[in-house]
Write a protein that binds this DNA or RNA. Structure first.
Lengths: 145, 145
DNA sequence: TGTAACCTTAGAGTTAACTCTAAGGTCAAC
DNA sequence: GTTGACCTTAGAGTTAACTCTAAGGTTACA
């Protein structure tokens, strides 16, 4: 069982942020000491780590709350609800993945071609590397006359 | 040459946001009419699209400004500066990619296993799917006794 | 037993990124 | 030539997500 400052150190968030996440229903401490100190068990830690990762990849707290609430629960969600939300989030993730991969490619082209040595630049801005990256995609897609 | 509302419609941002981005130096209109109306050429549009995509994958305006400023310029950046910034951003992109891929896998497991039919759930929450996803990774990594 | 380093809550303050409003000018069409 | 849908700027307002402060209680240890 970890105290709040230990959890904060472990996952790289401040104690303020952890209490803030608790206030918004994203995480919670399974136990409290007599004095009211929060104690986090393994599952609590996992959940906090999940929230941190999801924030890092750009999900809002509301998104994360929705992700965490995915659960078949006869009283509030049907199987259909669960798959709908999940599919929707998966689509968002897939879009971001494609955009990130394209950004990765662009940055890699820039890095590979820009600075072979002093004054040896063939592409020196992200916009130029982007053109190159699109030319390549067109070649791959066979769209060149 | 597009007017601001045309650019806004084309890339899916409001005219307010475009002017806001201009105020922060991220985009600009190459031309102005006598009355001061903004006119955007092809390169301006490309740049605005880049900003939109970069925002969508979670870069801050400051990050984007940095990405756009990557350029070998004898007076302000050396080749070394350019590669340092680019490498740093590439590392960030790679981290996000890995996290997104893991999120994709988790959501896919949830979707595949959760709702084969009514009451047929084997994994019903993201935390459960996450455990499964980690079990698989451990198998792949050969970490099973 | 005192003191430093924790912990608690409630609530105020900050920052980034929009988003809107006001007050007024422009333009194409009827 | 006027109407409605644009455009301009300056600046105020909003929202999400922290981040900090105040005031006070708890705990381990020298």
């Amino acid at each position: 069982m970890l105290k709040i400052s230990e959890l904060a150190a472990k996952i790289g968030l401040s104690t303020h942020t952890l209490r803030f996440y608790e206030k918004h229903g994203l995480i919670h401490a399974s136990d409290r000491s007599e004095a009211g100190y929060r104690y986090y068990n393994h599952a609590d830690v996992r959940r906090a780590e999940f929230v941190k990762t999801a924030r890092n990849i750009g999900f809002s707290l509301q998104d994360i709350s929705q992700l965490l609430s995915i659960r078949v629960d006869k009283h509030s969600h049907s199987c259909q609800d669960v798959t709908d939300i999940t599919q929707h989030k998966l689509n968002e993730v897939n879009t971001k993945l494609a955009e990130l991969q394209s950004m990765q490619q662009t940055l890699q082209i820039l890095l590979d071609s820009c600075c072979g040595g002093p004054e040896n630049a063939t592409h020196c801005s992200i916009m130029e590397a982007l053109e190159e990256s699109e030319d390549r995609n067109q070649l791959v897609a066979g769209n060149v006359k």
